[in-house]
Structures are given as structure tokens and as C-alpha cells.
Design a protein around this nucleic acid. Structure first.
Lengths: 335, 335
DNA sequence: ACAAAAAATACAATCGATTGTATTTTTGTA
DNA sequence: TACAAAAATACAATCGATTGTATTTTTTGT
């Protein structure tokens, strides 16, 4: 069922049908009505493949995240999708599963599908950005989101991780902690470096000497948290607080410690990062740094669409750094 | 950059270029190599819009879920996407936000984009399926997933909700409950009807009289759970167990009750449905019915692609019903 | 009522790739 | 060497919608 079928059925030309369906003022209302009615009667559905091909525009944005099922990403996607829908765009969502080769493959597919723009959060394996060149070649704007990427000329929507690290650590200090362990993530991710720097700065500002042995790196999974907690208990120093670079590891640690009879927050206070839904529910509820995925998603899409919609007069790239906020809960509520 | 540019650069015809790029054996290896090299040199990227238009096939599957950020759906999507990727398909993910008009809009967009198939979990507002007709008109196979839809001729991948309802309720009864409230969802969703039937059957088998006033319907959000919990406390009957059709509502209720000093499971035992990550962490940990989203997603995609790939000899629709399993935790561990 | 202006519609090229058919080139064999 | 068969390549139509230009129809003013 095409515009030609409608045209034939009415004995008119397909160009008139096309214009009528696009509500052009080059078609009189009478024929417009006739055409619309016939279109409905025949169950016509515009073929966007043809339309997009001709117009060289797809109203589609590609989104690549490491893993859809991570709460932060799924809520970010929800925000991205919502804003896109509002602005008349569609979204193709892909997951890199933290693998560089998948990421590369996805980029190529998105280019082949002629998306109008790309929003992505790079994988942990991504150390260079050669595979992103074809986006530039094809003049497709890209926006990095959550995970920073320092190739110039692109927009970023990020969280101020330094500030988050600083907030979390300062909070613990203000509650009376001064031997604070930091759970950090893979060292190549800027995000974790920044949270770590925030931790250090908070210590310095409060004249607490930095102790290298209190920084424990891992992949920050729940089981890592439990392992690190075990390590804490075997330390010669009496640890009285933990600032974890994510909630998941903090929760793993808390559960291990609780099972060993350690009191939280009295013996060891906790603060995490990300505000996972679980953190509100665990007992004691986990103090954390909020990073509103949905809001970041909306912002990212809005910013990218500004570039997409004004491609010809090339809007200059912009980096938005969102301020995180501390959510103080019971896990740090030392009296 | 098109095949015509490559053709012109080499002084050959674009049809040969096309065939070379598709590795047809109608092109000799020597010219193939020449073409591939030139394609790489010019940074050629196939235009899938044109290709799909010509081939009338997009290798794209549309996925509509109520809400991406719900854990069950995001893990299902992860499974869907993984299987699609493996089979050479792409996935367009959309959320209906439980709204019928959005759902309708999304269906139309997917049809206009000529997706090869649709996987969907209908919204809570969806009471009739007229808006799905255009899929049939356009000969696009659809598979319903998680939320059953009884229009004939389609495949379904479902959980045995009856069995789940039965398992959860029986478990509570075996722990000594006999005045069990059931939190149910919107009545139009078969899923909730089935969980409810499982609840009734478990009561009957244990000679516990069914009491209509113990069935409380809502949208099963966390705040609904809290509201229903309040209602429970004002009931003339002394309730001693709650079987909730999802974890989220159960958690909302538990938190309200805990704040009111009600002991769980001693005063009121709880069982939920879905095995949300939070359920493992709340105290007491929530007994629940497990439904593996990722596995369901993979299965759904595999089944749909069977239909898509053999459209001409119309594979007969199939309904796969997965068996749920009970995860007994502390919230029902009455001694 | 008629020419000129304006409005409505038709014609035809185009987007980029695919594919059936026609033509040219190569290969093998007598 | 010649000729048929086979292989390689070129030609041209097509997918469905859009859009600049040309043509026809209607409207307007005198």
C-alpha cells in the first residue's frame, strides 16, 4: 500500500498525494480530504525507509550503554527516550557489554542506519577512540554521557565525580570518622579517579593524613564488597568509615560486616555512590551520592538534539557537569 | 559516499560494486578485492535505508515494554538484545509508560519503520487490541511476552503465573498463615488474574475459605503497597500473611508496617513476585517468585525470529510457559 | 468575456542499493 | 584457430516517497 496506490485509486498523481499527506498548502482542502479519506480506507502506512532515504534524515538517535540492566543506565535510558519522544525522535538502544569490539560493531551499524546522532557511555575496555572516527566522517554528532571522553569537539553530560567523592567523604568526616577506607574502581576510568581525588581532598581539608593502604581497588561488584570487608576486619588499624565508589560494593560489604556482628554505623559508617534503589531499603539505609539517571538522560538528549537540529550552523560543543547531591541516611548516622 | 562513487572511481558499474560488497560469486575475486579496497579507501558505509527499502527487510525488531527502568524489563531487554545481536538483528526499544495512546503511537511508528517483528508486553491500560490490527495488516509478526494477550494466531512467552500464585500462597499457608491478603494488579491483565487464581486454588486445597474482602487491587507501585498496608491494619480481621502480585508493592507495605511496629513475619508474613534485587536486601529479606527476565527475553527473541525468518511458510504460533520457582526467605519464615 | 495572475496539479528526477536480464569477456575444447 | 559454453560485467528497472519544474486549471480584475 503506497502513495501510488492511493493516487491510482483517485486518478491523480502521487506527488499530490505525498503533498496532501504532508499537509502541504500546495494541495486544495477538497482533494486533501479526499486523499486522507482514501488513505485511511486503504490502511495506508507511510514507509519511513523511503521517506528517510529521500530526506536524508531518520529522526532516530542511537544510544550505546555498557549494560541496559544496570539501574543507572536503565533510568538514564528512560529519560533519554522520554525526551526523544517528546521532540519527535526515536531511539535505538544498544549495549556494548563493556566490550570494545561490540562497541565498534554497534557504531558501524548505527552509521549504516543513518541515525541523526549518537549518545554513548564508553565501555571499560575503550582506551582509544579510533572506532568513533566514522561518526565524524559521516557528520553525525555524538554526545558522551556519564563516562567522560576527552576527544575534542564533542558534548558531554557528566556528573561531577570529584565533588561526589568530596561530599561523601566530608560527610563521613563530619560524622566523626577519621580512618576511612575508600573502595575504588578500575584505575583507567576517569570517573573513579575523580571520586578518589574527591576523597583525598576531603581528607586533606580536614587534616587527616592520607593512608595509601586504606584505598582498595576492585570491580566494585557485590562480592568484591564482601571480600574487601573481610580485608578491613583483618587490618591493623581500626577502620571507622567506608566511602565506596558505588553502592553495590558498599552493600556487599555491609552485609558481610553485619553477619560478623559489626555495628553500622556505630563501628563503621558507610557512604556509597549512585543511589541504587536497593540502598534505600537496606538496613541501615545507605547514605549515598545521588546521580539522577533520568535527568541526565533528558539533558543529554536535549543537548544532542540542539546540535542535530542546527547541524548546518554547527552549534559549538558543550559540556554539562551536573552537581551530585548527598543523600544522608542511617548508615552514616553516628551519634 | 555511495556505491556509485566507488563505481565511478573504478570505471565499472554500480551493480558490480553492490554484488562485490555482498560477496556475490558473480564477481571475480580480483575485482572484488579492488572494490573492497577502494570502498575502505573512500570510507564507504552502506546505506541501510536504501538497502532495506529495496529488500523490504530491515533486520530490526521492535520491542515495547511498559517501563525500561523496571528491573524485570531491563533484564528481559538485555536478553532480547543479546539474542538479536547474535542472530544479526537489531532492536528498537520503546516504553509505553503503561499508556494506551503511547502504545498505539509506538506501534504505528514501528510499522512505518517496517520492523520485521514486534515483541511486546502490553500496558496496563490496554483493554482491547484494535490498535494492533495494523501489524496484521502489514504482515508483521508479533510476540507477547510476560503479559499475556489472547488474540489468536500469535506467539507468547509467559511465566506460569497461576503456578507462581499457587506456589507463593501455598508457601505462606505451610508457614501457618490462614488469613492471607492478596495484592492484585489491574483486573484486565491476565497475568494478575492468573496469579489470583493460583492464590484461590491454594486456599481451596487447604480448606481455607476465600474472602473477597482480602483481595486488594491496585497498580502495585510502592506507594500503593503502603496504602494497602494501612488498609490492612484497619481491617476487622487479623491478617497474618500477604501474598503480593509483585515485590514492589510488598516492599512498600512492609516498610509501612515496620514503621508501625508490626513484626514481619511473626505478625504478618510476606511473599512477593518477581525477585527484584531489592527483595534480597530488605529486612527481613522478601520471599518471592523468581522469573528470569534475561532468559525469557532470549527465548522470546529466538521464537519470534523463527517466525520472521520463515514468514512465507508461516510457522504456527507457539506459546511457551516458563515454570516459576519459589525463593523462600525470611519474610515468611514464621516459626 | 478575456487576458493575466495565481492556484492546483502533473511530470520527472532523485535518494542509494538491489537484482533480473542482456551483453561482453574469458575459458575450454575440438 | 574457432566456436560454444561459462563466467564476468553492464544495463536498466525497482523499492516508496519527496520535490523542483512544467503544465493545466481556476480565479481575479477590467
Amino acid at each position: 500500500m503506497t502513495i501510488h496506490d492511493i493516487a491510482k485509486a483517485l486518478g491523480i498523481d502521487s506527488s499530490t498525494v505525498s503533498r496532501a499527506l504532508n499537509d502541504s498548502d500546495r494541495v486544495t482542502k477538497k482533494t486533501k480530504d479526499k486523499i486522507l479519506e482514501k488513505a485511511k480506507e486503504l490502511g495506508y502506512q507511510r514507509n519511513l525507509l523511503a521517506s528517510n532515504l529521500r530526506k536524508n534524515k531518520t529522526f532516530t538517535i542511537g544510544v550505546i550503554v555498557p549494560r541496559i540492566s544496570r539501574h543507572f543506565f536503565s533510568s538514564a535510558i528512560a529519560g533519554i527516550e522520554e525526551m526523544a519522544f517528546e521532540k519527535g525522535y526515536r531511539v535505538v538502544i544498544c549495549q556494548s557489554l563493556e566490550q570494545l569490539d561490540r562497541e565498534q560493531n554497534l557504531i558501524e551499524t548505527l552509521v549504516a542506519n543513518r541515525v541523526d546522532g549518537v549518545i554513548m557511555s564508553i565501555s571499560m575496555e575503550t582506551l582509544n577512540y579510533k572506532h568513533l572516527d566514522i561518526l565524524k566522517t559521516n557528520n553525525i554528532p555524538i554526545l558522551f554521557f556519564d563516562r567522560h571522553c576527552d576527544i575534542p569537539g564533542n558534548s558531554n553530560v557528566l556528573l561531577d565525580d570529584f565533588e561526589g567523592g568530596y561530599l561523601g567523604t566530608s560527610h563521613l568526616i563530619s560524622k566523626g570518622c577519621n580512618r576511612i577506607v575508600h573502595f575504588s574502581g578500575p584505575r583507567n576510568l576517569k570517573m573513579y579517579q575523580n571520586r578518589f581525588q574527591g576523597y583525598i581532598t576531603a581528607l586533606e581539608e580536614n587534616n587527616i593524613p592520607f593512608d595509601e593502604s586504606l584505598v582498595l581497588s576492585s570491580h566494585l561488584m557485590e562480592k568484591d564488597g564482601a571480600l574487601l570487608a573481610k580485608k578491613i576486619l583483618s587490618m591493623p588499624i581500626q577502620v571507622d568509615g567506608v566511602f565506596s565508589a558505588n553502592d553495590v560494593a558498599a552493600i556487599g560489604a555491609m552485609q558481610y560486616l553485619k553477619s560478623k556482628g559489626v555495628l553500622i554505623p556505630e563501628d563503621i559508617a558507610f557512604a556509597g555512590f549512585s543511589n541504587e534503589p536497593t540502598s534505600r531499603v537496606i538496613e541501615p539505609s545507605l547514605t549515598t551520592i545521588d546521580q539522577s539517571g533520568s535527568q541526565m538522560g533528558k539533558l543529554a538528549m536535549e543537548l544532542l538534539l540542539k546540535q542535530v537540529d542546527n547541524k548546518q550552523d554547527s552549534i559549538s560543543p558543550e559540556t554539562i557537569v551536573l552537581k551530585p547531591s548527598l543523600i544522608a541516611r542511617e548508615s552514616s548516622n553516628k551519634k
